[in-house]
Design a protein around this nucleic acid. Structure first.
Length: 450
RNA sequence: GCGAUCGUAGCUCAGCUGGUUAGAGCGCCGGUUUGUGGUACCGGAGGUCACGGGUUCGAGCCCCGUCGGUCGCCCCA
């Protein structure tokens, strides 16, 4: 008496992607790969896990993000490892440990799974996937511009640009950012009692975040809050000007978003998000910014860099909503009947696929079943070979749209487009050594004329 | 971590104020068609009603707990 084993559940917040969604997912990745090559971003592959320090140092040891939202564990040697929650820190580590400085300015693109220990909700999973682009070792605003223009082109080529807008801001250089921060704290402290509980908390930990609070109680005060523009140094102002001018030159539309901020200290200058209102609370489709301070936190030399990342699932949802991704269509279904015919059909399927046709060969069910499946698959033609046909060296070519079916010499398949054979009756196969394609073309010409 | 909401067949769902053998559509399998699809008709398989406890003569339905899904808050690298 044994009880059947219990099927283990999938891990919370993971997804099994299949069918149309998987096609949309692949479409996003393929489009990214194509576009990234247009800009000569070089492909990189990084490990999905790193020493925990790679992430904890760059993010700051004390933040919620590090203490609660990373997948960290000890390996058998007692070393603390973490499944990557983002690409940037791992890329920065690779940049330093592999001497990639020699390639600077280095344009890198990658994509793959990331892991965050969060409560799942729409567009948010514990294992999710991003596409990612970075330019390391480039302090020039042109790098920001190129990254943004590429992002814009990507979204347009994916067909999701409608309803998605680019929100752009600058956080200034380090002195500008700090002066602004102090001014914000002073300002909000005066209204402390009127702020939401969350924002009172934020005042201590992360005052910039009050600006994009969702609580209506905070709204009246965020409007009148100090603006970064009043604290920008000349250099920072000039930098941002070059970014916006570059976007205008490239024809990339953007909206200035003075409340768009970044929580971590290493961010400088440009911050941006492509945002939609079609994905519920998780409206950011692609986001990034300049992180000139990051590489130093990993013990490297001062290295300016800028990058962005976009959630593949979120993009796939937008792509899928447009209904423009379908599974690959079947051209031809091959239906063998009987063991001997099966062998001939395997050979025929291989030949047709080498020819470039999308072919499936059925191996289950009776004739009715097999034809039914062929029909459902959307195939245009079915090629049927039973033992009778095999003995005569023929196969049945059935047009599944018209229902017209003719017997054809097996040797014709794989050498002639099926559309030429469609509906045309042939006699004996051409003599060996003659040009079969030519014969068939002239034969079918005769038929058409008559 | 917090809140709301949901969990019935492979899928989408119905199931009345608690009342006998729990339903539909789709899908699957078979038949009308011994080797011919799309349409139609007929039949069939498939359910520990998420799990565990409780209330009740009686629970898919009410109560408590657990797990899971979804949506939102916090956070957002």
């Amino acid at each position: 008496m044994s009880t059947p084993p219990k099927t283990p559940d999938a891990i919370r917040g993971t997804q099994d992607i299949f069918g149309a969604e998987a096609e949309a997912f692949a479409h996003v990745v393929e489009t990214f790969e194509r576009v990234r090559k247009l800009y000569r971003f070089r492909r990189a592959e990084m490990p999905v896990f790193e020493k925990t320090a790679v992430f904890s140092r760059s993010l700051g040891e004390t933040t919620d993000v590090v203490s609660k939202e990373m997948y960290s564990f000890e390996d058998r040697g007692g070393e603390s490892l973490t499944l990557r929650p983002e690409f940037t820190a791992g890329i920065a580590r690779a940049y330093l440990t592999n001497g990639w400085q020699q390639h600077a300015p280095l344009k890198l693109a990658t994509h793959g799974p990331l892991f965050r220990y969060e409560r799942p909700q729409k567009g948010r999973y514990r294992q999710f996937h991003q596409i990612n682009a970075e330019i390391l070792g480039a302090g020039e605003p042109q790098a920001d511009v190129e990254l943004l223009v590429m992002a814009d082109q990507l979204l347009k080529e994916l067909g999701v640009a409608d309803g998605v807008s680019l929100h752009l801001n600058t956080l200034g250089d380090a002195p500008s950012r700090e002066a602004w921060r102090v001014a914000l704290i002073d300002y909000f402290r005066d209204h402390r009692e009127s702020l939401s509980e969350d924002s009172q908390e934020r005042l201590e930990r992360n005052p910039l975040r009050i600006l994009d609070s969702k609580d209506p109680r905070d709204k009246p005060f965020t409007e009148g809050a100090p603006k970064i523009d009043d604290y920008l140094s000349d250099e920072a102002q000039d930098f941002f000007g070059k970014v916006t001018q570059g976007l205008e030159a490239a024809g990339v539309a953007f909206a200035r978003a003075p409340a768009l901020v970044r929580g971590l200290d290493y961010y400088r200058h440009t911050a941006f998000e492509f945002v939609t209102d079609r994905l519920g609370a998780q409206g950011t489709v692609l986001g990034g910014g300049r992180y000139d301070g990051l590489i130093e936190t990993l013990g490297g030399p001062h290295t300016p860099a800028v990058g962005w990342a976009a959630g593949i699932e979120r993009l796939a949802m937008l792509v899928g909503a447009g209904g423009n991704v379908a599974e690959g269509k079947l051209d031809t279904a091959i239906i063998p009947l009987g063991e001997a015919a099966e062998k001939a059909c395997i050979a025929l399927a291989a030949a047709l696929r080498r020819f470039g046709l999308v072919v499936e060969m059925s191996f289950r069910g009776n004739m009715k079943k097999r034809l039914g499946r062929a029909n459902e698959s959307g195939a245009e033609y079915a090629i049927i070979i039973g033992d009778n046909e095999l003995a005569a060296g023929k196969a049945l070519l059935r047009n599944l749209n018209t229902g017209v079916q003719t017997a054809q010499p097996i040797t014709h398949f794989g050498k002639v487009p099926l559309s030429l054979l469609d509906g045309v009756e042939f006699g004996e196969p051409p003599d060996p050594g003659t040009n079969q394609v030519f014969d068939i073309l002239t034969n079918s010409g005769k038929k058409d004329d008559s």
